[in-house]
Design a protein around this nucleic acid. Structure first.
Lengths: 225, 225
DNA sequence: CGAATGCTTCGTCTATCATCGAAGTATGAA
DNA sequence: TTCATACTTCGATGATAGACGAAGCATTCG
């Protein structure tokens, strides 16, 4: 008697190299066009189109029409978390797409995980918030304390706006390089956006890497030592 | 430029329905023979043999020869956690192998997750330990406090023996039915073994379900309300 | 209203791989 | 040593689905 969820459908979706490349590209958080994804996956446009249709049918990605462009992005945070957790397993087993290159340390230091900050800096951020009593963890759920809300407001985060949304403000996400959790959810997204808006950090072109400026690094380290 | 781990190999391994069925069967925690797995997957022995070779090459399972039998089991806790997290995603998307049947409530209440307790009871257990200050969480890492060690000793768990092993004593594992974490690691394994040894709970035949006896349920609820 | 861009659909081809029956190997029992 | 059990390997087959070129829609720009 069969019981439990069917993992083979999702496995099959992720199991094709072209699709895996597309999903990995989308882990950068940006919505990409079919042409860009074709380039990332190394296949032609018709092939890409077929793959995207399957990924969408499987609920892993969603598309947004905008004029003659169609932008594709991961369907939601949960899809991002799923991919990050599989990446974690793959990385620990040495299933790397290329041998670790010069970019690797930068990725491990700070990178985008769908829409929030990951890597050493991402883990450090959550650690500090928990240690200071700004965020409480309970399993993989997380919550912001009143003290944490004030701290976020001081950083320029509009907490009431985040709480008004239906999506979870605070979640944790398993980091593939650090093997520990970092902060996801709408707050995680807002914080990364804030770091970039204030010029503390910049996104590398065509990469998940996030580069902190000299000043940004000092400020970040002062806030989250 | 490609960067990051390669998730397609793992996806492909899980993506075949026969292999997914075998892995799901192995999530029961017991080591199974090739014949048993053939039955679970619904394929013949030669096919099973080929699949098992691939799963072993991919590092998801390990085999142990014992006389003329070969027992297959999940390679380690990490493989179990990976599968449970994918199951969580699949369950939330309605990717079920069969429509939820009469067994489903029992599975959600208490079941085996590789080698530890999952479901409502598993989540409840960890919640209680954290609330009582017996276990501390830090991301997905977890640790037992001195108070927790005493409590475990009172339950008949040989903590020094667990700590002497190389494998982590305390880990968290995302529960697919509860969407929250439960206790894994060697302590999680030891606790489930203890519940069964004391007759509080029994494993259902050919199922991941764990059935608590009347007395076991009372004791468990008294300890972890 | 063309023309150009961006993507999808169609048809076809090809290669991979899951599958099985039959034969082979290894271990244990008689 | 011989038979039986448990599994693997081999060889052949068939189905799936990933790939592309060409043609077809849709949208925007000149």
């Amino acid at each position: 008697m069969k019981e439990g969820p069917d993992i083979s459908q999702i496995g099959a979706l992720i199991g094709d190299p072209a699709r895996a490349n597309m999903l990995t590209a989308l882990m950068g958080g940006e919505a990409l066009t079919a042409s860009e994804l074709a380039g990332a996956a190394g296949v032609t446009l018709p092939t890409t189109s077929a793959h995207l249709a399957k990924l969408e049918a499987g609920g892993l990605i969603a598309q947004r029409k905008q004029g003659r462009h169609r932008y594709f992005a991961l369907a939601d945070d949960e899809a991002g978390r799923l991919l990050e957790s599989i990446m974690g397993y793959a990385a620990n087993r040495g299933h790397l797409r290329t041998r670790p290159g010069p970019k690797d340390p930068a990725l491990r230091k700070a990178r985008v995980c769908y829409n929030h900050l990951a890597g050493d800096y991402g883990v450090r951020l959550l650690d500090r918030l928990v240690a200071d009593g700004d965020v409480t963890l309970d399993g993989d759920e997380a919550a912001v304390t009143p003290a944490g809300e004030m701290r976020m407001a001081a950083l320029g985060i509009d907490m009431p706006a985040l709480k008004a949304q239906r999506r979870p403000v605070c979640r944790t996400c398993l980091d593939w390089s650090e093997r520990r959790s970092h902060l996801a959810g709408s707050l995680g997204e807002a914080l990364l956006a804030r770091f970039i808006a204030t010029g503390w950090a910049k996104r590398e072109k065509n990469s998940r890497a996030v580069r902190f400026t000299g000043e940004g690094e000092r400020e970040f380290m002062a806030l989250f030592p």
